[in-house]
Design a protein around this nucleic acid. Structure first.
Lengths: 342, 342
DNA sequence: CTGAAAGCGCTTACAG
DNA sequence: CTGAAAGCGCTTACAG
């Protein structure tokens, strides 16, 4: 005997399939059903160990109460598992909010595979009612962007999003962060403030942070020079001194750390020779002055709101706002001081 | 215009639905199709942005290439996210192996809900081709056991499993671990060796570890007395001295730690007054003597083999073995010495 | 090489 | 209060 279906239950209970479905599915359209019938059906279902086939249900209903998490590449999924605080926090946020919203979470793997026929991969996403896009780099024409376009399912972008995106977004206000970081340095008297970049540079988060840096400088009547953009790979004391910089804004924690290490190795004093402000999620504000000054915003509310938004959309409720964009706050640190001459 | 389906593609390409399906799905039964037709179809599909509806596909095909992870309760899912090394390792193992096997992972939430009609919850599991059961307590009649029974889908139990289980299991050999821990103490000359338990005690892992302890004692011609079973909640110097114990086997890390703290508080010296051996996953073996002696086994291979087994079953290949049961190894530690009188 | 048709197991308007 | 029937979108044996 295989798995029992509605037909089996119906025949055992001596009623029609429709009736069984109505009794067992808790349908919205409250159709009254006699207690006697109900009992017969429930008993029969129990006896046969009936379990609905959810593919059939999904096909008919059009939803699954499952949301997918889409990453650039499978190995990113792995990285997302607690290798560091950021990733651990991200995972915890995802799962906690999913539990709260009674949504199942589908972690997709293999999306970067080459094999398989025409968007077979995309199809797998269809299992979910909506997508949470958690890319680090939102390269245009990327497989992910493609996927998202093709599926006409609700999408919420987390942290990173395409520039021309008219969808839902949960991300900090990176431009504001760039302005804030730069503004603090300007207040202290810095005039020649650089911006740190990396070789593999995509527009997106970093671009927005950089554009905040530019805006702040221009508002202060300063036109940033090309040489003020420092590439981490080739950053050195010489490059920085040649550009005449007294401060640098780093769009990212790790990059700031790398830069500090390198410059210290070359005998540059931080902050005396060069001030550094970085971007961070969840800067610890335990009252102590952190080693690196930063503009920071907490990660948890972003993740939670992302899942919540998607849940709202999936359930047919329009979220209060299209974009959830909390601001960065400045956290003073030992990597910043007034410029020497100032 | 909604989402394009096979019919839309077929009509644009001027062919039948069957043909479109055959071109786009990479079906197993290699039916030859002319290049001309193929091109027409692919072009049409691309033009319309066709994406298969996976619920329909799943209904028809009968599989989804998705496996589910089933836990006792949703909040366990949350706990499973890197709060401690055990959980972090577990998550990492799950995801890494899933990626390797090209399986999607579905994390189920809300299974402990009261609301909902007759096994609505069970249905959600149907989304997956197989289940990985990751319960901590395999209480009989539990909702999870129920679910597993009702769905006739392949199941692999990880670490914990029902005693009467004839399914696939990936778990350490807990009985052997109990024998090993107790045996080491016997070798040192201990005769009166206790076993630590907890109030909320389920048969299962702890029971097997305890049965290993019993077996070892009996093999040494010692009949364990009732008073040798120490309940953590009421454990005290007095209880232990009254039972005349010189050593205790703890089935679990945390419990051992708690016991040590309590006894030290009462002025008992470890290991001079009482030796303690505990169970552990992944005891660090960096050459240094760990504070608590233990029998240990690595977690990662267990998790990986669990996912792999399920993958094999789901793909129709019979796994090499029905149970994967690595042994525990003894790791000496500062919590064990020969008994005082011995 | 291609198509018409059955069927996967549900849900739900419609009719009684 | 209950049932017969259409249809969700695919896949695939069968016939040509």
């Amino acid at each position: 005997m295989g798995r029992a279906d509605l037909k089996a239950v119906a025949s055992l209970a001596g009623v029609s399939i429709s009736t069984v479905s109505r009794v067992l599915n808790g349908s919205k359209t409250t159709v009254a059903i006699s207690e006697a019938t109900k009992k017969k059906v429930v008993d029969a279902a129990r006896r046969l160990g009936y379990v609905p086939v959810c593919a059939a249900r999904a096909l008919r209903r059009g939803y699954t109460r499952t949301i997918a998490v889409l990453c650039d590449a499978p190995d990113q999924l792995v990285r997302a598992i607690g290798r560091n605080m950021f990733d651990a926090e991200m995972m915890r946020g995802l799962v906690m909010e999913a539990v709260r919203q009674h949504l199942h979470l589908l972690f997709l793997t293999g999306l970067s595979d080459e094999g398989g026929t025409y968007n077979d991969q995309v199809a797998e996403l269809g299992m979910a009612d909506g997508l949470l896009v958690l890319n680090r780099n939102m390269k245009r024409g990327d497989i992910c962007a493609d996927v998202v376009l093709k599926l006409s399912k609700p999408v919420v972008y987390l942290l990173e999003y395409p520039d021309d995106c008219d969808g839902y977004i949960c991300a900090p206000d990176d431009v504001q962060g760039g302005r804030l970081a730069t503004g603090k340095l300007l207040e202290l008297g810095h005039r020649r403030i650089g911006f740190l970049t990396e070789r593999s540079y995509y527009p997106g988060v970093f671009g927005r942070r950089r554009s905040g840096w530019e805006t702040a400088l221009r508002s202060a009547g300063i036109e940033p020079e090309r040489s003020w953009i420092i590439e981490l790979g080739t950053a050195s004391r010489e490059v920085i001194e040649k550009a005449g910089l007294t401060a640098i804004v780093s769009p990212n924690d790790r990059m700031a750390q790398e830069l500090k290490n390198r410059l210290r190795g070359e005998g540059m004093a931080i902050p005396d020779d060069i001030s550094i402000v970085t971007f961070a999620y969840d800067a610890v504000s335990d009252g102590r002055v952190p080693p690196t000054a930063c503009v920071s915003t907490p990660l948890a509310p972003l993740v939670a709101r992302g899942v919540e938004m998607l849940s709202e959309i999936v359930c047919g409720n329009r979220p209060a706002e299209r974009k959830f964009m909390p601001e960065f706050a400045y956290v003073a640190g030992r990597s910043v001081t007034a410029p020497r001459g100032g």
